[in-house]
């Protein structure tokens, strides 16, 4: 009998119950999972022109035939003072603003609605930009096909870097017809609006764009265009 009990005790000793340990570990894992940021924020790099006047004059020499001005307008909620990213308007014109017939409500400015509600990211503005940047977009599309077929290299990383380099060359190729996009935003536009328009520049491979301040001519044109569209 005595021997029997001894052996039994030994058997109990070798086995440790891990359940509390697992419980504690699970708790710790939950804690770490909730406290960590797995997804890091992305960044969008932009370069603004300097505030100096000399450079401003140089900028204005942008070839008028290539320039596209986009004006972003939003709506500010009176209660919160915030701008709703889903409620916005875009205005655009090519080249210089035509103001001779502004009093009659005629100008070269056009108004389009933000595509946020339709689901797509600005189908309207994308079409316009792609049309203006056709040569680059087509070339990049060809390049992308080659990239997908891994034509540059069998190695995925090498393939990627060669593609990136070639794409950059095309974007900055001065022999192609490339637009210069001038982005302006009214104070009512939301930050999200501006970022998504900047995004469109990336999507449509536009290498030359700048953010500028809105001026009186632009606002006058906006008011006229809006009034005209309301009458319709």
């Amino acid at each position: 009998m005595a021997i029997k009990t001894k052996s039994r005790q030994k058997k109990f000793d070798t086995r440790i119950d891990f359940t509390p340990m697992v419980d504690m570990n699970m708790l710790l894992i939950t804690f770490f999972m909730l406290c960590t940021t797995m997804i890091k924020s992305q960044t969008l790099q932009i370069a603004l022109p300097t505030n100096e006047k000399v450079e401003k004059e140089q900028q204005n020499k942008v070839k008028q035939s290539e320039a596209v001005t986009i004006i972003i307008d939003g709506k500010i909620d009176e209660k919160t003072g915030l701008s709703n990213p889903e409620d916005g308007m875009l205005f655009y014109y090519d080249g210089m603003p035509e103001t001779d017939k502004l009093a009659q409500g005629e100008s070269n400015m056009k108004q389009i609605e933000f595509g946020a509600k339709t689901g797509g990211a600005y189908p309207a503005i994308r079409e316009i930009l792609q049309e203006r940047n056709k040569e680059v977009v087509l070339k990049i599309a060809d390049l992308k096909k080659e990239w997908k077929e891994m034509k540059f290299s069998k190695n995925e990383e090498v393939n990627d870097s060669i593609y990136q380099e070639k794409a950059k060359k095309i974007r900055n190729d001065s022999t192609l017809k490339r637009p210069v996009v001038i982005i302006k935003a009214t104070p009512n536009a939301s930050y999200a609006h501006v970022v998504s328009v900047l995004d469109e520049m990336q999507i449509n491979n536009i290498s030359r764009y700048q953010i500028d301040r809105i001026n009186e001519v632009d606002s006058a044109m906006m008011i006229m265009v809006q009034a005209k569209n309301l009458k319709k």
């Binding site: 992305q42 990213p85 900047l198 995004d199 990336q202």
Partner: peptide, 11 residues
């Protein structure tokens, strides 16, 4: 809440 963008560059 930062706005969404297609940029893939990390902070």
């Amino acid at each position: 809440i930062t706005p969404p963008s297609v940029s893939e560059e990390k902070v």
